[in-house]
């Protein structure tokens, strides 16, 4: 554990340096939005009524947006209120000093995200977002979220629906989340096509049937938990599959989730052409690790459904998983 000591030392030194830094800066975003708001005075905010003079359509549809309540809050500072709370002081726009102000579709992802992050500290900080793979792929908040309207944009994405794995036959499926551009399945699969295609396989998590959705397992925002993830000893799968979680008196090493890939050592989480989301078919799954059992050990059907190793995920009474 020498590496642990070194890394821990570096971490502690960083924190001490941070705590004692004379010029430590608050977690404020940088970029055009911060610059505009920093130099604005109260007189530079003209109010949403003025914006409506030219942008009546946007102002009207914004009323139904999930953001409307927050931005209409009279207790909020002017810099976080109304249209100008996101787009910047209207006076600059009218004076044509910054004619576009904060135009999210024209900003770089980094600057656009910085503008959103001015208000979302209760979800995460800019630095936390900075370390996510979505940020590293140069995605902006507005790549997935729509701000003005509350009507799901998937009505506009009817063409994309023919590519979606979501089953049109199933009725009882979650509605599109507020502020997302489309339902999660359509939205996520517009970039993650290969992953999405796995849900078409014969054995799959019931995502096409609407019983789970992407964010049930994947946390896109670093400090927001995925709804069905319980991050305890064995990560990810415990919330829905608690019966396989243990800890058991006799753990099956891969399932313990402490070494290897945990559940993913045997299962493919999105979908598989093998039953039960398994990586390989029948006893081939067990034989790829327990090679000595391949042909010499009861050459019957699948190890668990033949009635022998029925407690493969772990047992409280038998070290060979012959009973629960």
């Amino acid at each position: 554990m020498r590496l642990e000591t070194v890394v821990l030392g570096v971490g502690l030194v960083s924190l001490v340096l941070g705590a004692t830094a004379q010029k430590a800066v608050p977690d404020q975003p940088k970029g055009i939005a911060a610059a505009l708001f920093a130099k604005a005075s109260e007189d530079d905010y003209v109010g949403a009524e003025t914006c409506a003079g030219c942008h009546a359509e946007h102002v009207a549809e914004f009323k139904n947006s999930g953001h409307a309540a927050y931005s209409n809050d009279p207790r909020a500072p002017l810099s976080k209120r109304g249209c100008e709370g996101c787009h910047g002081p209207g006076k600059f726009h009218l004076d044509e000093e910054h004619p576009e102000n904060v135009a999210f579709t024209k900003l770089s992802a980094k600057e656009s995200n910085a503008a959103c992050m001015r208000c979302h500290a209760e979800t995460m900080s800019q630095s936390q977002w900075h370390r996510t793979s979505h940020q590293q792929a140069n995605l902006a908040c507005v790549s997935c979220h729509q701000i003005h309207t509350n009507t799901p944009a998937d009505e506009k994405l009817a063409k994309a629906k023919i590519a979606s794995v979501s089953s049109p036959l199933v009725v009882a499926k979650p509605a599109t989340k507020k502020l997302l551009k489309a339902d999660e399945v359509t939205l996520c699969s517009s970039c993650h096509q290969a992953e999405s295609a796995q849900f078409r396989l014969n054995s799959h998590h019931p995502l096409p049937e609407g019983r789970v959705t992407c964010s049930d397992c994947h946390a896109t925002h670093p400090t927001n938990k995925a709804r069905k993830t319980v991050d305890i000893v064995k990560e990810k799968c415990a919330s829905c599959h608690a019966e396989h979680t243990g800890p058991f008196v006799f753990e099956h090493d891969p399932v313990a989730g402490l070494t290897g890939d945990g559940c993913a050592e045997c299962h493919r989480s999105h979908g598989s052409h093998n039953p039960k989301l398994l990586k390989s078919f029948s006893r081939g799954l067990c034989a790829s690790c327990h090679t000595e059992k391949t042909t010499t050990h009861y050459p019957g059907r699948t190890c668990w459904s033949a009635g022998c190793h029925v407690a493969l995920h772990g047992s409280n009474s038998d070290s060979r998983f012959l009973k629960p």
Partner: peptide, 29 residues
């Protein structure tokens, strides 16, 4: 057939910009 299980978990995290270009954070559970 299986024992009832309770998991209680306490967590804390903190993250901040140390300088305009360096950020650091930590969490405990």
């Amino acid at each position: 057939k299986r024992p009832d299980t309770q998991v209680q978990r306490w967590t804390a995290h903190y993250d901040r910009n140390l300088t305009p270009t360096i950020d650091a954070g930590g969490s405990y559970a």
